[in-house]
Design a binder for these strands. Sequence first.
DNA 1: CTCGTGAACTTGTGTATACGAGTCTAAGTA
DNA 2: TACTTAGACTCGTATACACAAGTTCACGAG
Lengths: 253, 253
Amino acid sequence: MTVQIDPASDRAVYRQIADYLRGEVERGEREPGAQLPSESQLMSAYNVSRVTARRALGVLVTEGLVVAEHGRGWFVRRRPPVKRLGSDRFSRRAEGKAAFTVDMEASNRRFRVDVLDVGRGPAPIEATTRLGLDAGAETVVRRRLYFAEDQPIEVATSYIPLDVADGTPIDQPNPGPGGIYARMEDKGMTFDRYEEEISARMPTQEETRLLRLPPGSPVMHLVRTAIADGRPVEVCDTVMDAAAFVLHYRLPA
Amino acid sequence: MTVQIDPASDRAVYRQIADYLRGEVERGEREPGAQLPSESQLMSAYNVSRVTARRALGVLVTEGLVVAEHGRGWFVRRRPPVKRLGSDRFSRRAEGKAAFTVDMEASNRRFRVDVLDVGRGPAPIEATTRLGLDAGAETVVRRRLYFAEDQPIEVATSYIPLDVADGTPIDQPNPGPGGIYARMEDKGMTFDRYEEEISARMPTQEETRLLRLPPGSPVMHLVRTAIADGRPVEVCDTVMDAAAFVLHYRLPA
DNA sequence: CTCGTGAACTTGTGTATACGAGTCTAAGTA
DNA sequence: TACTTAGACTCGTATACACAAGTTCACGAG
């Protein structure tokens, strides 16, 4: 194992080790149930003390990615966190500043919204499936961060088929009054219903940063498919600080 | 600070310290935002090394209860995990074995259900509020554990007003075929709708044990109020292993 | 009064060491 | 063959120490 660790880096050594192992797990190079290097292997591979090796593993425990088995070793969790939607391209671009900011009034509360990223690009497989598109198809992608009282509480990514957005400012940072739904209605579309899937999991590193989450804080994950005129016209992937929200639903019996 | 720690106990010292601090937080003796003892104060109070004191605090970090601020100290999290429903009396009684076990067929999957506890007792304030009862009113309480493929996935507690259960076996471990809803329909009741609230949080200790959760694994929390003939007839508080479930909803537009 | 500095606290990161306890395997014994 | 045991591995818990870095506050200089 080559040494990828820079002790002079700003980032603590144990975090660098955790980053490396996390990358291997997230890229699928270590599958669920697979054994990780033992603590003593980490000690010699990275030239650190056992305390530091264990601290690296402890980070991944807090993230729900790995578990220890006494006397046996460390393993990638068998029931991994729910599959994430996410686009690499837009994840990277969202590192920068907000492209656009608006204030909106919703449910009697003022929200600030930072539009992190807007553009056209390939959608993740989970989104194309829900939209009824071919795998890897291009869509309009809108990524934004919602605030309540200057606290970031929600990061949302929408995927809209190109033909739905066509001829509208939906692919622009500011889609105009009423947002993208209003633009779709301008085109004569009528919304039928929403299909939603709700799950909870530990946040990714990026979500921890964007939502300013303390360690050990789960997020709720809401994937909403909007259906208009009988066809899916938007998949909206929303990640919320779980401590900040309770969702209320009313279902017919 | 008196020493409540037993080094000879089976339970590790750092866990005992964590238990004590957790209790103070959960009982409200340390409010959100309040400062915890510093690491050196814990060292002298419990006569342990700094590593052990930090390990105790690390447990509470993983549970999402406390945060550290560099150079300032340790604090109870300001946005605490969503309020839990829960009845002390029944939590204690549920420690034992299942009172009753049934197999049920649901959505093409076989479930095993352990009925942990059934009886009459005071309901928590959150349940009485939803049921429109006075605070501390008695209800029928049914607590049960659901399994899928011998994995515990769900612990559910139902609170039913006494007059709704009256004259039925709803307050018995086995309420008969079709469960308690069938018994209510036997009485001529018609279900109108459900109101649900969904949140996510880190599990309590008891939930971790019952659901066999690895550390760092969040739970989803579903509170469902069933309404029949215009009045709430049951509050069902369900805690699920978040990694095992995705909830699907269809909402009218 | 304002500003800056230093001391005394806090947590963050890292080392080395020790022993307990669970798991696995291979060698040895009945 | 079947069982036991010893050894070598694993993680679990705990001690003691060191230095870096952030926060707070009081004191002194201007």
